[in-house]
């Protein structure tokens, strides 16, 4: 089991199928707290499906069937007694394409605290979240502008700020930089190092350099199966499995 920290998320024989298509098969994975775990693999390998299993976002797909177990702090999140709304407040998500609400920057970030009935100062909470997301300096004088008026990279950091403002424990990121230019990508990668001091981050990426740069642990998936999982350094320099080596050296993918 990699990592010195406690596992915060764990899967046990996790299977996810869309109708007859088995997108994710027999996944056993444990994700350590306050670190960055990258999930890599070619398109269609099931990495996004696996990510969405952690906050039960697969449930919006009509024909999906999930079996096995996903544990968040020892609790199986697929048990019927689990309140999915509270679960998603603890496990936030940033999507591939920035999706700010068509509301002001302030209202976007204040959304989480507001629906949670946060008793403190929203103003302060919003400012903190924007600072943590490294966006404050660019937007502090225009909080009442529409979130959609920002650039793509700024919108994505706004979405990260919106997630941070909920004070989740885990942040899931589904290829958060794939729609961004290299400079915006770099800013978000820098931000990830800051964020892992406080949060557990699971990031899906098809950009291997990105996984190598930012993550502590890397999971390589292929055709729905977890092929190899370990410290990022080892996965990229001394992989144990041939398929992993072929993928990280660019022989396929």
């Amino acid at each position: 089991m990699p990592g010195e920290n406690h596992p915060i998320l764990e899967t046990k024989d996790l299977n996810i199928a869309y109708g007859t298509l088995e997108a994710v098969r027999h996944i056993n994975l444990s994700i350590p707290e306050k670190s960055i775990t990258a999930i890599i693999g070619p398109s269609g390998c099931g990495k996004s499906t696996l990510l969405r299993a952690f906050n039960r976002m697969n449930e919006f797909i009509a024909s999906v069937r999930t079996t096995g177990m996903v544990r968040f702090r020892e609790q199986n999140i697929y048990e019927t007694s689990v309140d999915v709304v509270s679960l998603r407040r603890a496990i936030g998500m940033v999507f591939q394409k920035p999706n700010p609400f068509p509301k002001t920057i302030f209202k976007n970030v204040a959304w989480g605290p507001r629906i949670n009935g946060y008793p403190g100062s929203l103003q302060q909470r919003v400012e903190e979240a924007l600072k943590k997301a490294a966006l404050w300096d660019e937007v502090s004088d225009k909080l009442d502008q529409d979130g959609l008026s920002l650039s793509g990279g700024q919108q994505q950091r706004l979405c990260i700020a919106r997630t941070i403002a909920m004070e989740p424990e885990v942040i899931l990121m589904d290829e958060p930089c794939s729609a961004l230019d290299p400079i915006s990508t770099r800013r978000i990668e820098d931000l990830l190092f800051e964020l892992k001091q406080r949060y557990t981050i699971v990031i899906v990426t098809h950009n291997m350099q990105q996984a190598a740069r930012v993550s502590d642990h890397t999971a390589f998936m292929y055709q729905g199966e977890l092929i190899e999982y370990g410290p990022t350094e080892l996965i990229f320099t001394r992989p144990k499995v041939k398929q992993t080596e072929d993928y990280v050296t660019g022989k396929f993918g």
Partner: peptide, 26 residues
């Protein structure tokens, strides 16, 4: 767009919040 609904749900919003505070105003 569905992406706005997913943003809402991923922030721990209830169906009511997503319907009346995200989709309806949008």
């Amino acid at each position: 767009p569905g992406s706005l609904r997913y943003a809402g749900y991923a922030l721990g919003s209830t169906k009511y919040d997503v319907s009346f505070r995200v989709v309806l105003p949008s």
